[in-house]
């Protein structure tokens, strides 16, 4: 009986949109000819769609490069703050966390202006030092530039996850290690890292989902670099363009569903692997 209201809300809020997307994905609406039931044709089309796979390849590359860098920095900072050897640690903690409080749209706009080679920060550096830095918004570099923005935004968030996990490690363990003559590195590798394994796995899963859903940053930068960021730059952006510029709601829903499934599978595999060794 207590479950009733929960189930109702659950069905309305979680199941209904998914069911509706599934429903949409088996139809096709044409400007000429109206709506017809097409079964799995949209799925077949998506599996043979180079634009979709290119976008997926791009976010996978992003995931493989950006996520380790971001989590590595976050871990370093968390360990540094936790070590207690840093003066003014609450200042560092808050300033590193601050970017997370900046809305992603604002952050992307801000960085977009800094990346400007004419009037932006890059342009100013070029003028001041007489150098000519490569354009961060050129097709070759724009993915790295997006990675930089995302790293800046989320290092603080991940740092906080790691830091809070580190705080609950009992101090008696450190004391015991000290008595056994373990150095700081040994403490980190033998006590701290194993203790926060769960937090590492959670942060990794969040980052995987975040990478696959990459949308805000490329979408904002697109207006500054429309040739470098295509309408199918990431799968999410592709689904958005299909729906809002092309009125291809059905195909867009299909792409969204496939992307959701892929994300789920990868996140699940990471979770299985990450948690297994813990036991």
């Amino acid at each position: 009986m207590f479950v009733g209201p929960f189930m109702l809300v659950f069905a309305l809020v979680f199941l209904a949109p998914i069911a509706y997307s599934l429903y949409l994905s088996v139809f096709r609406t044409q400007m000429v000819g109206g709506t017809t039931f097409v079964g799995l044709e949209n799925y077949a089309q998506a599996f043979a769609d180079p634009q979709f796979w290119e976008g997926l390849g791009r976010v996978s590359l992003f995931l493989l490069v950006q996520v380790p860098i971001m989590l590595g920095i976050a871990l370093l900072v968390a360990l540094a703050i936790d070590s207690g050897r840093l003066y003014g640690k609450s200042f560092f903690r808050i300033s590193i966390f601050m970017p997370y409080a900046v809305p992603a749209v604002v952050a992307a706009l801000m960085w977009g202006f800094m990346y400007g080679t004419r009037f932006g920060l890059v342009g100013n550096i070029n003028d001041a030092f007489g150098v000519s830095l490569p354009n961060p918004l050129s097709p070759d570099l724009v993915l790295a530039s997006i990675g930089n923005i995302v790293t800046w935004e989320f290092v603080g968030y991940n740092m906080l996850i790691f830091y809070s996990a580190l705080r609950v490690v009992p101090h008696s363990l450190y004391e015991a290690a000290e008595i056994d003559g373990a150095g700081q590195w040994r403490v980190i590798s033998a006590i701290k890292l194993p203790a926060i394994r769960g937090a590492l796995v959670i942060a990794t899963i969040f980052s995987i989902i975040g990478s696959f859903q990459l949308f805000n940053e490329p979408s904002i930068l697109q207006s500054l670099a429309p040739n470098a960021i295509t309408t199918s730059y990431t799968p999410n952006l592709y689904a958005y363009s299909l729906s809002f510029s092309g009125q291809q709601y059905n195909y867009s829903a299909t792409v969204a569903i496939i992307m959701g499934l892929i994300t789920m599978v990868i996140a699940y595999v990471v979770q299985l692997r990450g948690m297994r060794k813990e036991a």
Partner: peptide, 15 residues
């Protein structure tokens, strides 16, 4: 900037 989540609301299948 509307997320893809808006997608479910954006269309009406009846046509």
């Amino acid at each position: 900037l509307a997320g893809v989540l808006a997608l479910g609301l954006a269309a009406c299948g009846s046509g």
